[in-house]
């Protein structure tokens, strides 16, 4: 790592001030995306603002017809949240496949969403549920938030504080793990909330998480895996690496979407 100055604010206000004051500063939550990159000397922030000890960023809360999750909530806290298990079980199941138990003790949902790794799981859940990302400045719909790999609508000096997830019992995440990294080779999150059906895909697209309108339209008519028969996504624009080429990834999107729909339907309302 290159050297940096270290700050550990205890309020959101302090964090925002530090972010404004320090040029080339990076926010550090669980550190499991940023620190490996810094260790490889591929990132060299002049200042680290550690936001892991800001009480305002933690907690999972039921609010009307949605669940609000603090950005600093760790993956294991999400997985163990009874509120989430009861109201959005598909979301509570997402962190089970993120990293490993040790990573889940440190990594945070806000960190994952802010980083928008093209192979990460939470972006699919946020987009697949139609979540709202709440920052110190504003509310951003997931559809507007994710803007291509490692790119989001966040402005400099903006900190994600919470995510608001609409309650959707019929939802599920299916992931085909990258055999080395454990990230999503392909991951598909599906949800049905009234007439709103969403299918969000991570890992597959060269430009990060995306929705599949054709699948959504078919599932809107009938939310059943069979509705996707004969449908597929194009291999154009799919990722290509030594473990999976575009054609295979495109194929997996269809397989996993069908399986996710079946999983969602298997839940008791």
């Amino acid at each position: 790592m290159y050297n940096f100055t270290f700050h550990q604010p205890t309020t959101l206000r302090q964090a925002v001030n530090l972010l404004a004051k320090n040029e080339d500063a990076k926010l550090l939550a669980g550190g499991h995306s940023l620190l490996p990159v810094m260790k490889q000397r591929l990132a060299s922030p002049a200042a680290i603002i550690d936001i892991s000890r800001i009480p305002e960023l933690s907690g999972v809360e039921l609010k009307g017809r949605s669940v609000v999750v603090g950005a600093g909530t760790t993956h294991s806290e999400v997985a163990n949240s009874q509120v989430l298990k009861d109201s959005i079980p598909g979301l509570a199941e997402v962190p089970a496949s993120i990293g490993d138990p040790h990573v889940r003790h440190r990594g945070t949902i806000g960190g994952s969403i802010a980083n928008n790794d093209p192979n990460a799981d939470y972006p699919a859940a946020a987009l697949g549920l139609g979540a709202t990302i709440i920052t110190n400045k504003r509310r951003i719909a997931a559809d507007d938030f994710f803007q291509g790999m490692f790119t989001t609508a966040l402005e400099p000096n903006e900190i994600i504080t919470k995510m608001q997830f609409p309650i959707a019992k019929k939802c599920a995440y299916q992931k085909f793990k990258h055999p080395a990294s454990g990230f999503a080779l392909v991951g598909v999150f599906v949800s049905k909330r009234g007439s709103d059906v969403r299918v969000a895909v991570t890992g597959a697209g060269a430009n990060g998480v995306f929705r599949v309108p054709e699948f959504e339209a078919a599932l809107k008519k009938r939310f059943n895996a069979k509705s996707l028969d004969g449908l597929s996504v194009s291999a154009d624009g799919m990722n290509n690496d030594i473990h999976a080429g575009p054609e295979y990834r495109a194929h997996l999107v269809g397989v996993l979407a069908r399986r996710a729909v079946a999983d969602a339907n298997a839940r008791k309302d």
């Binding site: 550090l28 550190g31 499991h32 620190l35 550690d50 990573v103 003790h105 440190r106």
Partner: peptide, 27 residues
């Protein structure tokens, strides 16, 4: 390793297993 995957560095932090290679001591 240097990619937070091998787990040779696992210790308990306030009672929970963490990867000490991916934790700043100041944090």
């Amino acid at each position: 390793c240097d990619t937070s995957q091998c787990g040779a560095c696992v210790v308990h932090l306030d009672g929970k297993a963490v990867k000490s290679c991916t934790t700043l001591v100041l944090s």
